[in-house]
Each structure stands twice: as C-alpha cells, then as structure tokens.
C-alpha cells in the first residue's frame, strides 16, 4: 500500500465527520512526531532525546530533523551503537528525575536492549516494593513493507505487550503521532511507542494546536454492523481499505484501532463484538503467540456467546520477512486476505 492510499483511507476512516478546520495545516506522520518532540522539549526542560543518529543525521527516519539545531547537543544526543547502554541510561536518567525519550532505530535492534527494558525498566518499581519510578519513553520503528529483509522488518509489538509494567502504544494516525508523546511523558512508568515504518509519509491535516490524545483506549475508526476488524499500527490502513471494499459488497465492517497494546482496552473490543457478533483480528506479527492471539482469547473468554462465527485471524506467514517484493507481500497481511476473512466470518465465503 502506498502512503497516498493510506492517507486517503485514513481520512475516510475518521468518519468524514470532521473536515479539516480552517486553521488546519497539512502535515505528515513524521512531521507530527517531530512537532510532538518540539512541543515536549519546549514545555519541559527535563525532556531530552537520545538515540542513534537522532542529532546530526536528523534521525534515521528524519523524525528529529532540525531538533539538534534548535535544542542543542545536551538535549538531542547522538549515541554510539550501544542499544543496551543508552536504553539503560534512559532508565537511570528517568529514575533521577529526567524525562528521556530514547529512540531505537528498529524493533529488531531493540532486542539488544531488551534486557534493560524487561529486567530494569518494567521491573524496578515492583521489585523495589514501589520505591522506584521509571518515567521513560522509548520509541522505535516496527514492521515490514519496505523490502528491508529479515533484520529490519519484524513486528514484535506483542513481545513488549507481554511485559507487565510497560505501557505499549501504536500510533496509526496523524492525531496519535502528534498527541501520544506528551501524555506518555506524563506517565510515571515506562512507555514504548511503536511507529510503523510505512506510516512516516502518511499525510493529512491537523489543527494548528492539536491537544493531547488519550493513551488508555482503543478507537473505533469506522462504524459498522456486520463484522469487527481489529487492527493497529501498520495494519489499520489495510483494515480501513478492506472495510471500503466490504462496503461495496454490502458488508458493513467496523474497524477498531487498538492504539494501546498494553494494557489492552477490552471494553471497546467487546462492545464492538457485541454489535457485530463477528471478529477478524489483523496483525502483522507471526500468528503464534501474537497480539492477535491475545485479542482472540480475550473475546473467547469474555464474549463467547456474542459470537456468531469463529474468530478469524489475519497475520504474517511464519517466516523471517524476505527481501524480494513479491515474497514480502506474500508474507504480510494484505487487503484481499482481510476481505476474505471478513466474508468467511459473515458466512459469504468458505
């Protein structure tokens, strides 16, 4: 899916009830993230950004372009390629009262820092009997779709969402890209923000002074009555496109954007399933032990008798993400697969 397509579908996804306000400005997901950092650093002197190539280079995905020039080297810190050390340094600085934002280039690289995230960031408050607080924000790119092959393309959000003590966010819209950082920085506990690599060029409009968004709830991005499509991050656009296609076939799909991957907002999912009685979960991760598995299990546990069909999952084929375009496409959830799953759920196919 091209960024342009994503933009169009996202606009439709916002229920078309809010046309751009007169003061709205054109922006992108990348620029919205940058503006969120700029605002946070202006508002709070304790906020600083560190990570690989966030300064002189401007960020591997150009999120932080220009921030070094504006805020200086103390607050926009280029780090060595030492994921464990700079993530751990973020933990220590947060414990000492700062509000660090640590950028890790991709989720695959974050595995080098997973010790710090799990054994320290997520654990210290509980293990110390409530004495320590780690108000750290970690941002990283996730996901495939750019032919970056098997060490830059995985979707491991579910691994992080498995960890008690973390809050895990997946902004999939301009509003969330712009609005999630500030509340994340207000959280006294560690927050991990996943930015899907295919979203940085997503374009659209935002009000000149958009407020913060909540980091508690899932969001219904499109209302429908026949089937619920649950998606997040990089799969939201695909789910919305699939919903368009289903509408043309006379099937009314509701699209729920999880937004918050931990703690999961069960209520929004269950309410939607109570309306539609059918569930398709779309997740770019491998199916085994995935967030899609978790959502499916929760619905089965809490709303079994609401379901008129078994739960459908659309996930990645369980291989390391390959380089060749056709193989990568075949690996990932795609719109036709989501449409087919939804049709099966409503009894139109299979």
């Amino acid at each position: 899916m091209s960024p342009r397509t994503a933009t169009a579908t996202h606009r439709r996804g916002r229920k078309a009830s809010a046309p751009p306000a007169p003061t709205a400005t054109a922006t992108t997901y990348r620029e919205a993230l940058r503006e969120a950092h700029r605002e946070a650093m202006r508002r709070d002197p304790r906020v600083f950004l560190m990570g690989e190539d966030v300064g002189r280079y401007g960020g591997a995905f150009a999120v932080s372009l220009g921030l070094l020039e504006e805020f200086g080297e103390d607050r926009v810190r280029d780090t060595p390629l030492s994921e464990a050390a700079f993530t751990g340094a973020g933990i220590g600085a947060a414990m000492r009262g700062m509000r660090p934002v640590v950028e890790i280039m991709t989720v695959n690289f974050s595995l080098l820092a997973l010790d710090q995230v799990l054994n320290n960031a997520a654990t210290l408050r509980h293990m110390s009997g409530g004495q320590l607080s780690v108000p750290l924000v970690i941002r990283m790119t996730t996901g495939a779709g750019r032919q970056l092959a098997a060490q830059h393309s995985h979707s491991l959000e579910g691994w992080y969402a498995h960890i008690p003590g973390l809050r895990v966010l997946a902004p999939a819209t301009l509003e969330d890209a712009r609005g999630m950082l500030w509340p994340a920085l207000q959280d006294p506990d560690p927050v991990v923000i996943f930015e899907h690599g295919s979203l940085y060029n997503l374009s659209g409009h935002l009000p000149a002074d958009p407020g913060p968004v909540d980091i508690e709830r899932a969001a219904v991005r499109r209302s429908g009555t026949d089937v619920t499509l649950v998606a997040f991050g990089g799969t939201l656009g695909k789910a919305l496109t699939a919903a368009e296609s289903l509408a043309a076939q006379g099937i009314s799909a509701e699209v729920v954007d999880l937004r918050v991957l931990r703690p999961l907002d069960d209520a929004t999912i269950l309410e939607s399933v109570a309306r539609t009685h059918r569930l398709v979960v779309v997740d770019e991760a491998w199916r085994t032990g995935s967030l899609a598995a978790e959502v499916s299990a929760r619905v089965a546990e809490q709303a079994f008798f609401e379901l008129d069909a078994h739960v459908e999952r659309v996930g990645a084929v369980e291989v390391p993400v390959p380089y060749a375009q056709h193989l990568e496409e075949a690996t990932l959830p795609q719109v036709p697969g989501i449409v087919e799953a939804a049709r099966r759920a409503v009894g139109e196919d299979g």
Partner: peptide
C-alpha cells in the same frame, strides 16, 4: 551499569 550511567547523565 547502563542504569548507573543514566543516573550520572541526569546529574
């Protein structure tokens, strides 16, 4: 050790 570095960074 990384946490110690971070405490010192804040200082």
């Amino acid at each position: 050790l990384p946490v110690a570095v971070g405490l010192a960074l804040a200082d």
